Computed example of a mutant assay.
Amino acid sequence: MKTLKILVGVAFVIAISAFALDKVSGAKIDKGYSIGDVATDFKLKNVDDSLVSLEDYKDAKGFIVVFTCNHCPYSVAYEDRIIALDATFKTKGYPVVAINPNNPKAYPDDSFDNMKIRANDKGFTFPYLFDDGQKIYPQYGATKTPHVYVLEKTPQGNIVRYIGAIDNNYKDASAADQKYVEDAVNALLKGEKVPVEVTKAIGCSIKA
């Protein structure tokens, strides 16, 4: 009985400590969004030094939000496909909005100045935003670069309809036979249910 009381006491102390740590850090207890959740808007600096938020897109039907960066080889491998997604779907109401979630102190290659260079060199046709202070990616639950969230604009807000990878072959776009993001947006444009709602994002871990 004495041992049981000690164990209960220890568990209580651990629980209180964890709660206190969360209160101090301000960290969210949950793991980000699930399918059907309303995604938060944001106002982040673009590489052209303007501030961009989702509410700026008055005529959009939804968004392809991509957490990506400069240095990650997976992100680099997908850059042309991200540009292609924007070219295909922006005019149909689903523009790409890219966000760099990395801490430039951990990876100087991902600094805001280097973002400007990368966007110019690649000819990005979409906003490339800096998650200054790393406040947005934890709300979404992004863990990798790239990590994609397809949002559908509704009267209730921007609803999460797909989370995960762009397709099933980061090495070779022509070899990808499951184009998750493309299929998700096409389904939404038809008013249909997204065929695959969640996949595992493949990429580099986000650098805090």
Rank of each mutant, 00 (worst) to 15 (best):
G9N: 15
V10R: 05
I14D: 00
I14P: 00
A15M: 08
A20H: 05
V24T: 12
K28G: 10
K28Q: 13
I29P: 12
I29Y: 12
S34P: 02
L44M: 05
S53K: 15
L54Y: 00
D56H: 10
A60Q: 06
K61W: 01
K61S: 06
F63L: 02
F63H: 09
C69P: 02
H71D: 10
H71Q: 13
Y78Q: 14
V97P: 11
N100E: 01
D110P: 09
N114V: 06
K116G: 05
I117S: 05
A119E: 04
N120Y: 11
G123V: 15
Y128M: 09
D131N: 07
D132Q: 15
Q134K: 12
Q139H: 08
A142D: 03
A142M: 07
P146C: 13
P146Q: 09
L151P: 01
E152Y: 03
E152N: 03
R161G: 04
Y162W: 08
D167P: 07
S174P: 02
A175S: 08
Q178M: 08
Y180K: 06
D183R: 00
A184N: 03
K190E: 14
K193C: 03
V196R: 11
V198D: 01
T199G: 05
K200W: 06
I202F: 12
I202R: 14
C204N: 06
C204H: 14
K207A: 00
